[in-house]
Every structure is written in structure tokens, then in C-alpha cells.
Design a protein around this nucleic acid. Structure first.
Length: 273
DNA sequence: AAGATTACCTGAAGGC
DNA sequence: TGCCTTCAGGTAATCT
């Protein structure tokens, strides 16, 4: 499931492989993956070059223009739950591949089993202004701003870490991992925690996201990188998906609990309520 | 106004 | 070639 580290790896790979290349064609087998309509997207982008790849939280902005560095139109990409973007010369597309982008002969596939994700054409090049409900990127927000936004809240901290309006990028897996590393229970309320503890959650959130990026992301079920390979961070997970196993730090039992409708995994010993 | 619930989809897993 | 229910989790919309 793509969260910030997985999206960052996709963005970097797209940038490396496609920057400056001309978009010559788009084949569409599921129109819902290309908004507002495949026709309008083709009419706006065909013949233009990909001049910018920018990640914000779990979103990727793809900037297109006529000349070098010129950006006159943008595609906004979100992978949601099962979206995959990759280039693989020997790949045989299955029924879940919905889009084929032709960049000067190189084919980029968009595959999405659950069809939640996709691309959306933005008028002009609004960038982050197109997603005003999304807060600053979790890797860019200052500790001060983050503490101001979260410090007095009364909702469970797990829910707030997942709230993309406060800071963008953490998903269910990395949020559980960050809370374990910080030693904080997922139901803890920020208003009840001291600043030092909150600062630890902030630091560990950043750290686990950076480690995820370094390891090529986490593949639990569906994520693959730009070359179609799964990520390596799964081995580093300490609590997510390890219900019933011993905690790697203290050997306490890892338990699972629904928080805000989402499964949360934590160590009952390291993360007391 | 924040928090809870539901919708969007498909596939895997497990009970019977 | 079994049927049915539940679950997985990102986000928007719709409730309370």
C-alpha cells in the first residue's frame, strides 16, 4: 500500500526515466483512471514534454510543457490503495492495467486492482493549490508547526497521524511503526502528552519514513517500484502485520486494535496506555 | 466542529 | 469452478 516512501520512490524513478521526454500517446482501457476524460487529457498533453515531477504527501504532480523547464499543464497522480506505475520492457499486461503512456517509445504502465487511484488533469499548473485540504509534507513541515497543529488535539494520536490535513504522507503502516518506535500508545491523546513525547513521535515519524525511502518502500500486498520489483522495508516492520508475535524490542506481545476504524498494531509493553 | 460512518473497488482468506 | 462474509486501507462525502 503506497504511503510517502513508496510514492517518493515512484516519483524519483519517473523523474530519472522520463524527465524531458515527450508524451506521444495514451492507451486507455479503464476511463475512470484518467480524469476528467481520456479525450481531454490527450488533447491537453500529447506532444508536450514531462518537465517536472513533484511529490507532496502521497500525491505526485507531473508538469508538462512545450520547451525545457516550461510547465503549462499538470497531471495529478494518486495511487490510493493498489495503484502501480512502472516500466518493464518484458511485461505482459493483465486485466488490471488501465493506462499505457507512450514516452518516445517507452511504455509506462498504470495498474490498479481496486481502481481507487488514477490521474487527473489540472487546469494550468496550480501545484499544491489544487489540494488545499492537504497539509505540508511530513518530511518538510517544521517541528514547531507540527506541534502547534497537533498539540492540543483530543483525538487518538493514531488518527491524527493519518489525518493528511495536519501533515501529509503517513499511512497506516508507517504510523504504527512510528508510534512503536516512539513508545506511544495509538489511543493516546496529544493533549495528555508532554511536548517531549510528542516531539519523539514527530522525530520517529520522520525517521521511519526516511528509512522506508532508503529501503525502496514496503510491499505488503501490492506495491511495486518502477521496475516492477517489490520494496524491501517489510523486513524492518516491527509491529505492523505482526499480531501475536513477540515485540522485537522487549518480547512483549504485539496486539491489534481498531482505532478510528483502522487496524492498529502495537506492543502492549513498549506502548502502555 | 470534530469525530464517526459510508462509499468507492477487487481479491484473499476463512467459515460452513 | 462453492457460497458467503469479512477484511484490507486512502480519501471524499455525508452524517451526528
Amino acid at each position: 500500500m503506497p504511503e510517502l516512501p513508496e510514492v517518493e520512490n515512484v516519483a524519483r524513478a519517473m523523474s530519472d526515466a522520463l524527465l524531458g521526454k515527450r508524451l506521444d500517446g495514451i492507451r486507455v482501457t479503464y476511463a475512470g483512471a484518467l480524469k476528467p476524460t481520456p479525450r481531454k487529457v490527450r488533447s491537453a498533453l500529447l506532444g508536450l514534454r514531462l518537465n517536472e515531477v513533484m511529490r507532496h504527501g502521497k500525491y505526485i504532480f507531473l508538469g508538462f510543457g512545450h520547451d525545457v523547464d516550461d510547465v503549462t499543464a499538470q497531471l495529478l497522480l494518486h495511487l490510493r490503495m493498489t495503484g502501480q506505475v512502472f516500466v518493464q520492457s518484458d511485461y505482459r499486461p493483465d486485466k488490471h492495467v488501465h493506462l499505457f503512456f507512450d514516452f518516445e517509445g517507452r511504455v509506462v504502465f498504470y495498474r490498479d486492482i481496486r481502481k481507487f487511484g488514477g490521474f487527473e488533469l489540472l487546469d494550468g499548473a496550480p501545484g499544491a493549490a489544487a489540494i488545499p485540504h492537504v497539509g505540508q509534507d511530513m518530511l518538510l513541515i517544521s517541528r514547531r508547526d507540527w506541534l502547534l497543529k497537533i498539540g492540543k488535539r483530543t483525538a487518538p494520536i493514531k488518527v491524527l497521524l493519518l489525518n493528511q490535513g495536519i501533515a501529509a504522507g503517513l499511512g497506516n503502516i508507517y504510523a504504527d511503526e512510528a508510534l512503536h518506535r516512539a513508545g506511544v500508545h495509538p489511543l493516546a491523546r496529544p493533549v495528555d502528552l508532554d511536548v517531549k513525547t510528542l516531539a519523539r513521535v514527530f522525530r520517529e515519524s520522520r525517521r521511519v519514513l526516511r528509512q522506508g525511502i532508503k529501503h525502496g518502500g514496503t510491499t505488503f500486498q501490492d506495491f511495486v517500484d518502477f521496475t516492477g520489483k517489490p520494496g524491501n522495508f517489510r523486513d524492518q516492520l516491527r509491529v505492523y502485520g505482526r499480531t501475536g508475535e513477540p515485540c522485537p524490542v522487549c518480547s512483549g506481545k504485539i496486539v491489534r486494535l481498531k482505532v478510528g476504524g483502522r487496524s492498529s498494531h502495537y506492543c502492549a509493553v513498549c506502548q502502555p496506555e
